[in-house]
Design a protein around this nucleic acid. Structure first.
Length: 551
DNA sequence: AAAAAAC
């Protein structure tokens, strides 16, 4: 097996909660030398380094084994942003126009009229040019409705299916506002006063949002900055101090930098929670409370708060309302918590012991097409990735116990196709937008149906089609059966009869996951409990049919 | 019991 080069170093692991001591499984596969998956050395020069800026200043040797055997021991600062790199984008798929057929529902008082084109968004010239250069021709539903809502100064809870353009829906109106008020113009200062704070639940996702912000802000005086853990704190701070209008971050590092007094929050006009339901669940909710209660942070009445996700469990919706003005608008594109119908979903019944064999079989048929394999634990991610490498499937992996630079390298290798198979934990479940991901495999099904919807949403993006294969082990996955059937039928997918039977007989069994069962098909304010608790005035709802009839 | 997120 000398063909494979497994590194066993796991020194200096950045993350918290490193579980340690499993060096033997640390495949870092990324099989070296002998293969050339999708392209020689070129990627080494650019995207990886730009992505890893701040991770290491020098001295760290990049992974060996380029065909040239070249060692890169110093990473030069990236060249001034090249337009082509900034505006790189991929093509919309054959089903892009089908977005027009999706049912859109806006509830809350006096929603503004939707726009039909980007021209109607009345963006300034620079922004329009950036939109065009990004390859955007026509707004998606969440953009058609979200942009005017945000421009009108309203708070928003938006639910739109995976891959349907939520990021641009909030970035464009925010940038337009910053431009038109000419308030935003970045300059060095020991204390920065950003106008916008954006948070997301994983480091890679916030980086992706930052890249979008940088793209749309190109050629303007607005400077977006990204900060997240696993990187040098000093670097984060220096980047912030250079000038910061839009501060993107994961909660920990963001609060850290705020706590150090580098960022003053009184100028914040927009607070954006991407993957809002995750940001408000048990893990992150305390941090979000800390953020909105930080000194200087304008109250919800004085700022605009925007939340985006593809899923919104009802309990989380009620919690989210605490962060929003009482007259916030609720925007639902398609079924709340629903899967994208461009994804063909297959469920295979397996046993714990047949999974690995099935996976191999599957990957042999998918060949070099890109596949994300989701597993339940970090430990198993290492194990499966190692297994696949040994079976000659070029594989890399991403999970929270890997060093940040390993995580970023893994994504880079996957994106470039050097490793067309990515084994991942739920760290990669949400928001990541990668081109050419044809397949998602749920090697282990998640406990939570929302997680399932997000995971399979890594494929079938932007009107492209994709396939999601899930291994269903009745021994462990029965609690998910009912909600799974619901998602499948909601996305016009075939429901295997064996699954239907399991779902039927699972009805009423104990240990049922309540989150798995319930969908918020609408704004919770329509429910009696909410009206009783929070809303003095009844909310008015406007159901909107396919496309234009929105007046 | 697991995953994510600051040092």
């Amino acid at each position: 097996m000398e063909l494979l080069s497994f590194k066993s170093d796991f020194s200096g692991r950045g993350g918290r909660g490193a579980s340690g001591g499993r060096g033997a499984f640390r495949q870092d596969g990324d099989i070296e030398g002998r293969r050339s998956f999708g392209g020689g050395d070129w990627y080494r020069g650019r995207d990886e380094e730009v992505f890893s800026r701040g991770l290491q200043k020098d001295g760290e040797e990049k992974e060996g084994g380029t065909s040239a055997g070249a060692k890169v021991s110093y990473i030069p600062p990236p060249p001034p942003e090249e337009e082509n790199a900034v505006f790189a984008h991929y093509a919309t798929g054959v089903n892009f126009d089908k977005y027009d057929d999706i049912l859109v529902d806006v509830s809350g008082s006096n929603p503004p009229k939707a726009i039909m084109t980007f021209e109607e968004a009345q963006l300034c010239e620079t922004l329009n040019r950036n939109v065009a250069k990004s390859g955007y021709e026509k707004p998606t539903p969440v953009q058609k409705h979200g942009i005017p809502i945000i421009s009108a100064g309203r708070d928003l809870m938006a639910c739109a299916q995976t891959g349907s353009g939520k990021t641009a829906a909030f970035l464009l109106p925010i940038l337009q506002h910053l431009m038109s008020n000419a308030a935003a113009s970045s300059k060095f200062s020991e204390v920065q006063e950003p106008e916008v704070i954006i948070v997301a639940p994983t480091r890679e996702l916030i980086y992706q949002i930052y890249l979008e912000a940088r793209k749309f802000a190109y050629g303007t005086c607005v400077r977006p900055v990204v900060v997240y853990g696993g990187t040098n704190t000093g670097f984060s701070i220096r980047e912030v101090l250079k000038g910061c209008n839009i501060l993107c971050g994961t909660p920990g590092r963001l609060l850290d930098i705020i706590g150090r007094g580098k960022v003053e929050l009184s100028k914040v006009r927009y607070l954006v929670l991407d993957e809002a339901d995750r940001m408000l669940d048990m893990g992150f909710e305390p941090d979000m409370r800390k953020l909105v209660n930080s000194s200087g942070m304008p109250s919800k009445e004085e700022r605009q708060t925007l939340m985006f996700s593809a899923t919104y469990p009802e309990d989380i919706q009620r919690l989210a309302a605490c962060f929003l003005k009482v007259d916030y608008l609720f925007l639902a594109v398609g079924v709340v918590g629903g899967a994208c119908s461009d994804i063909k979903q297959l469920i295979l019944q397996v046993t714990k012991y047949s999974k690995r064999e099935k996976l191999l079989e599957l990957l042999k048929t998918t060949g070099a097409e890109r596949t994300i394999v989701f597993v339940e634990t970090k430990r198993y991610a290492d194990f499966i990735a190692t297994f696949l490498c040994q079976e000659d499937v070029p594989t890399t992996s991403i999970h929270g116990d890997r060093e940040q630079r390993e995580r970023e390298k893994a994504l880079s290798y996957f994106r470039t196709g050097r490793c067309p198979v990515l084994v991942a934990t739920s760290v990669a479940a949400r928001g990541l937008d990668m081109e050419h991901v044809q397949h998602v495999v749920n090697f282990d099904l998640p406990k939570d149906i929302d997680e399932y919807v997000h995971r399979i949403g890594r494929t079938g993006r932007c009107g492209n089609t994709g396939r999601a294969v899930s291994f269903f082990d009745p021994q462990s996955d029965t609690p998910l059966a009912r909600s799974l059937v619901k998602v499948l039928s909601g996305a016009q997918q075939e429901v295997p009869s064996w699954l239907e039977e399991i779902a039927f007989s699972a009805h009423g069994t104990s240990g049922f996951n309540p989150r798995g069962e319930v969908f918020a098909s609408t704004d919770t304010r329509r429910g009696a409990s909410f009206l009783k608790d929070h809303t003095p005035q009844p909310s008015q709802s406007t159901a909107v049919g396919p496309d234009e009839d929105w007046d």
